[in-house]
């Protein structure tokens, strides 16, 4: 490991499985995922739709329907987040861990004024008066770049643009100074021009508050310049983790490589054809043995379907992946004992 953290991790996810019962069978939405996040660190979680990244975020919070089963271990600042204890949720949610949702036009209550939505959490968690909470709300709105905050407090969400609503959502999330902010596709529902503003805002606020961030996106560009580390997910599993720069510069897993190849870039010559990943996600009810990407991978060979767990690190770094025929060309013969974890 090149980076040594003196402090212990804020969040540790250890061999997490999240199983969602459906009429058609059990969906293994998160399948043996381990990762850790240190105080003040930003981690990106990328993957295409259906890779399990949103379920991972909700599994960490425990914000899931009652019939969903989580197993493994999740600890947050020494607390067991796998517990279904309502009191623990009420204590941590909003106060220590906050969530920014994908679509601000759906995550703000359309019939409740902005003031209430912004102050209710502060009143509950910080035990302050409405007047105090209002004062802080005005400050927060200013901080997230909402003009004329006095007037905005009296607004209903329907009276604001999408970008403004997401700024309000971020203000709500930040209102109780959480230690960890989980942003689940925070800009996907917004215009491209607004996306960048919102992402820059998140980054600035994170650094100013020394807050940890879990930034979930299908868009590699969103994660690229704004996170310290990245975890790539495919069909419920981690396929590659490491420093964001290292993973993007020298992807090891063939899926990461293909995903980067499918991303348009300004540095490529014009009219370069985008590489498309052929095929679709594997059967979610009964995923194939071995590497889940094998069916779509152009570098596939027989050992890819071996059911033995495979997880290996590049020497001298925390860059790890689960590919038997990695892009760096080294054919790996040895199997690493068991599935490792990221960033320990």
């Amino acid at each position: 490991m090149t980076i040594s953290h003196t402090a212990s991790p804020l969040l540790e996810v250890d061999h997490l499985h999240t199983h969602i019962p459906t009429p058609a069978g059990v969906v293994r939405a998160v399948d043996d995922v381990s990762l850790s996040l240190h105080p003040g660190e930003a981690m990106g979680i990328v993957g295409e739709s259906g890779s399990g990244k949103s379920v991972l975020a909700r599994s960490i919070m425990g914000l899931l329907p009652r019939n969903v089963v989580r197993s493994g271990a999740i600890s947050f600042d020494g607390r067991d987040l796998l517990s279904d204890d309502r009191a623990l949720h009420e204590e941590l949610w909003g106060r220590r861990i906050a969530l920014v949702f994908q679509d601000p036009s759906r995550s703000l209550n359309p019939v409740v004024r902005v003031e209430r939505q912004l102050t209710e959490g502060m009143r509950k968690h910080l035990g302050i008066s409405q007047a105090e909470a209002r004062g802080r709300a005005l400050q927060l709105l200013q901080e997230v770049g909402v003009p004329d905050p006095e007037r905005r407090l009296t607004n209903f969400p329907g009276q604001m643009s999408g970008g403004m609503r997401q700024r309000v959502m971020i203000a709500v999330a930040l209102s109780c100074e959480p230690d960890l902010l989980i942003a689940d596709e925070p800009t996907t529902a917004l215009d491209v021009t607004i996306q960048r503003q919102i992402l820059d805002l998140l980054e600035r606020l994170r650094q100013a508050r020394r807050m940890s961030l879990l930034l979930i996106s299908h868009d590699l560009g969103v994660v690229a310049g704004r996170t310290d580390r990245v975890a790539v997910m495919y069909a419920g599993r981690l396929v590659e983790t490491g420093r964001t720069k290292a993973v993007f510069a020298t992807p090891q897993h063939r899926y990461t490589e293909a995903l980067l190849g499918a991303t348009p870039s300004l540095t490529l010559p014009r009219h370069t054809r985008l590489q498309v990943i052929k095929g679709g996600l594997p059967n979610v009810y009964d995923p194939p043995a071995g590497c889940r990407f094998a069916d779509r991978c152009v570098h596939v060979s027989g050992d890819c379907r071996s059911p033995d767990p495979f997880w290996i690190g590049l020497p001298g770094s925390d860059h790890m992946h689960g590919c038997r025929h990695p892009a760096s060309g080294d054919v790996v013969s040895a199997t690493a004992g068991g599935v490792g974890s990221l960033g320990r």
């Binding site: 009420e90 909003g94 969530l99 509950k124």
Partner: peptide
């Protein structure tokens, strides 16, 4: 989503239901 968001703020079930 806004009900889930209210729960994610740590508001009690009763509060989320009525408010």
């Amino acid at each position: 989503d806004y009900v889930e968001a209210a729960r994610a703020k740590g508001m009690s079930s009763r509060y989320v239901l009525w408010r």
